[in-house]
């Protein structure tokens, strides 16, 4: 399995707050990597570093063999066209309706005609199980619908990798299940790899091909789900046992 991203000793601080203290991680093509960790452990920061939304203080981020740790903003554009980011709250543009939100990346980066864009928008919505909502504004959508529309926007440009930032946080169990199934479907049907940042155990169980556990600014564990269950790391055990008690 080839690497898409490779992180080597990546460090990131915000003032006196040392968030990442030396992350080593590889992201492989074709797999779903789940990054588990508590709130404020730097999971989202790590995702943002991957596509240059913020830049690392030190260490290296390698994308397909090229060091992309410190590039100019525009130099990240080719990577961002191939790697989509699903934000925690969806980050839909609230001045635009659903159609305009989904059409946005197509209008920006392609010469597609309006009918072709409409067809592609409808197709993307169908893939996430939504229909006839193109005219709605984000404020008309429920939390689950908003996540699904955001996912439709993330896949509309046919990316190779999607970075999911807590895709199921704040959702009810049924909607969580729907989103988890969609993440798997993106992998199986569209061959999209994923990095899923979460602290939600159902998402871990349903979506993870590999699990990385982020604690105190470093990757404290990385391996398969089976290996994670046998891990002696106390916090990681607490995640699995906490779920067993429930």
């Amino acid at each position: 399995m080839t690497h898409i991203f490779k992180l080597q000793q990546v460090v990131k601080s915000f003032g006196p707050n040392h968030v990442l203290r030396g992350i080593d991680l590889d992201i492989r093509r074709g797999e779903n990597l789940v990054v588990l960790g508590g709130s404020g452990t730097g999971k989202s920061v790590m995702l943002k570093l991957l596509i240059g939304l913020i830049q690392a203080d030190s260490g290296q981020i390698i994308f397909e063999g090229q060091d992309i740790t410190h590039l100019a903003e525009r130099a990240y554009y080719p990577i961002r066209k191939r790697v989509s980011y699903l934000f925690q709250g969806g980050a839909l543009f609230d001045s635009m309706n659903v159609y305009q939100n989904l059409a946005y990346p197509l209008k920006e980066h392609t010469d597609m005609s309006s009918p072709a864009i409409l067809a592609k928008v409808q197709d993307a919505l169908t893939k996430v199980g939504l229909k006839d909502i193109e005219h709605l504004s984000p404020s008309d959508l429920s939390g689950g619908m908003m996540k699904r529309v955001a996912l439709a926007r993330a896949i509309i440009n046919e990316p190779e990798l999607i970075l999911y930032d807590e895709p199921t946080t704040g959702l009810d169990p049924i909607t969580t299940h729907t989103i988890n199934e969609l993440i798997r479907k993106m992998q199986s049907d569209l061959n999209i790899s994923s990095v899923i940042v979460t602290h939600d155990m159902p998402t871990v169980h349903r979506c993870a091909d590999r699990l990385a556990f982020l604690d105190k600014g470093v990757i404290a564990f990385i391996g398969s789900l089976e290996e994670a269950r046998l891990s002696t790391h106390p916090k990681l055990r607490a995640y699995f046992e906490g779920e067993a008690i429930d």
């Binding site: 554009y77 961002r80 934000f87 980050a91 440009n157």
Partner: peptide, 12 residues
Amino acid sequence: TQQLDAMRAMAT
């Protein structure tokens, strides 16, 4: 609400 980051993440 991360809409500016979303713009940047979509290479705009």
